[in-house]
Design a protein around this nucleic acid. Structure first.
Length: 255
DNA sequence: ATGGCAAAAGAGTTTTGA
């Protein structure tokens, strides 16, 4: 199976890029974040014509998550149970017996802000749900925009960024809590080096100068990590006209 | 010097992202 995650920063704008990417890459599952559209605007028809099924949980202007697959999407789930949240950030489905969890973790804006507190609270509630989900699904992949750079090598300038949002210790502790549930950062099974990023600021010629962050991840349970064969960041879409500021992260495994 | 770009809402400019 080949699975991927991509924060598209508006599917209204990025649908042509997504359709082209599906044709070129033929994933078994593609998780999207920041679709920024209500369910009634989601392009189910265009995807169907391309041979893909999809589920979506969206809202106007902000957030929005989707899972796209050529296969059947079983046992679908949206939102964190017992966590009142208007923001559409979690969607899950089982595809070919593999549990696919797609998340758009809050950005947090700035350490100490209300949005930062919301991020940490969201992470706590999500992790509790994820713990039970893993127990029910030994083959699980958690894909999405985590808005956390887990290690210093995942940030282009860790000295300048120390203590800032995306790299602060409470956020990295929340990321470690995922690994304490048994999940592994699949990208790092294959790519150990620095300078590997999934997001670059539109400003400051960030992409050209590789001033980025690795904040989009595919974490997997041991059942999947032991059969994984490759993981990589596909920078091609970031080079297109009007790109998203994120680019796809891909995992391949035998299943 | 915290800006710089991009998208959305909505009609000038503000909010948000990371």
């Amino acid at each position: 199976m080949k699975i991927a995650t991509w924060n598209v920063n508006s599917l209204n704008v990025r649908l042509p890029h997504v359709l082209d990417w599906l044709v070129a890459n033929k994933p078994d599952a593609l998780c999207l974040q920041e679709t920024k559209q209500e369910d009634s605007k989601f392009p189910y028809e265009a995807l169907k014509e391309a041979g893909y099924n999809a589920i979506h949980s969206g809202q106007k202007t902000y957030n929005g998550v989707a899972i796209i697959s050529p296969h059947k999407l079983d046992d679908t789930h949206m939102g964190i149970p017992h966590f009142a949240d208007e923001q559409k950030r979690l969607i899950a489905a089982t595809i070919n017996g593999v549990r696919i969890v797609c998340v758009y973790i809050p950005n947090g804006q700035a350490v100490g802000s209300d949005k930062y507190a919301y991020k940490l609270g969201w992470l706590q509630a999500f992790t509790a749900w994820l713990s039970t989900e893993i127990k029910q699904h030994p083959k699980l992949a958690l894909l999405g925009d985590y808005n956390i750079a887990p290690e210093d090598i995942d940030c282009h300038d860790p000295v300048a960024w120390v203590g800032q949002v995306l790299v602060s210790e409470p956020e990295r502790e929340a990321f470690k809590a995922f690994t304490q549930l048994g999940l592994e950062d699949s990208f790092r099974l294959f790519e150990k080096g620095e300078g590997q990023f999934s997001w670059w600021d539109y400003r400051m010629a960030g992409f050209r100068r590789n001033l980025g962050m690795r904040i989009d991840h595919i974490l997997v349970t041991p059942e999947l990590s032991k059969v994984s064969t490759a993981s990589y960041i596909d920078k091609a879409p970031r080079k297109l006209e009007r790109p998203s500021d994120h680019t796809p992260v891909v995992l391949e495994f035998n299943h």
